[in-house]
């Protein structure tokens, strides 16, 4: 555990040196500031819902909806930047002369990889915590309504990035570079995952059963990042009775399998 912790610290130090914490901090602070300015016209916003004097429950839903919308919009942006930020963590580690020094120390390859992986995930966790808590505090103070469930966005979005980070790790190990990892991860996050999430609608336009089954196969094989953020998170917040927890389980299986494959590749690699 100690070795993993040291590598996490080292990775955060690396990201800090690249001014990425500052960049995320500035974006988050700007976002929180803009939300505060929007809330300065809060009565106008609430009137948009057709009721100038809503009840407490209704008010809570409105506030929660506002918070979730803001967080989901910003989380997409944050994940895109986080993919860019963490894409070269593995390739920089694998550089000749760097990896030799690390692995000449009493640290296993698995510990080194876990440390690097968790370093990236911790980076997103810290930044998401700042953003979500910031939005939560601004909105809650303004309305004097404290819906703590919105803080669930921190682990949910961090988990989403943890899933995407698997693509970065495996690509980095295979190519020793960051370009392929970024392309694959962006493609999956922006294009493929939304398509797979909408496969039921798409199926109406597809006549081939094989293609429909293939889409289903991909949907369950790959992490359901789009649905986790856009559907499951909302279902939990809105206290929906039919929360699709199974998507979290499928994605967790993907994450474990992805890490196992990464360890195998790294263990077999000649450095």
């Amino acid at each position: 555990m100690r070795n993993i912790f040291i590598i996490i610290l080292y990775t955060l130090r690396e990201l800090f040196a690249r001014k990425l914490f500052i960049a995320f901090g500035i974006i988050s602070t700007l976002a929180i500031g803009i939300i505060w300015m929007i809330l300065a016209n809060g009565s106008v916003m609430i009137n948009q819902f057709g009721n100038a004097n809503p009840g407490y429950d209704e008010m809570e839903k409105i506030v929660l909806g506002f918070e979730v919308s803001a967080i989901l919009f910003l989380s997409d942006l944050f994940i895109l930047i986080a993919i860019f930020s963490c894409a070269n963590l593995i390739s920089s580690m694998l550089e000749k002369g760097t990896i030799d020094v690390f692995l000449s120390k009493p640290i296993s390859r698995t510990q080194l990889l876990v440390g690097k992986y968790l370093g990236g995930v911790t980076f997103v966790f810290i930044n998401m915590t700042y953003l979500v808590v910031g939005i939560f505090l601004v909105v809650s103070f303004y309305f004097n309504l404290w819906s703590f469930t919105v803080l669930l966005a921190i682990p949910v979005i961090t988990f989403t990035f943890a899933l995407l980070n698997i693509f970065l790790i495996i690509s980095g190990l295979l190519t020793r570079g960051s370009a392929l990892g970024m392309i694959v991860t962006y493609f999956y996050f922006i294009v493929l995952s939304p398509i797979l999430a909408a496969r039921d609608s798409i199926s109406n336009f597809i006549s081939s059963d094989i293609l429909k089954q293939f889409l289903d196969f991909l949907y369950y094989l790959l992490p359901q990042v789009h649905d986790i953020v856009k559907t499951v998170f909302k279902q939990i917040l809105l206290q929906n009775e039919n929360v699709q927890y199974e998507l979290l389980i499928y994605s967790t299986i993907f994450l474990i399998a992805g890490l196992a494959i990464s360890f195998f590749i790294f263990e077999k690699k000649d450095l």
Binding site: Y10, R13, A17, K96, T98, D100, V101, F102, P106
Partner: peptide, 27 residues
């Protein structure tokens, strides 16, 4: 074991003290 690789690289963003700090902890 101690190892000095040929053409070794240390992260540019670290000071000499920090390099030895992290690698010392890993040792």
């Amino acid at each position: 074991i101690g190892y000095l690789p040929e053409n070794h690289r240390f992260p540019n963003f670290l000071t000499a003290y920090q390099v030895l700090y992290y690698l010392g902890l890993l040792s």
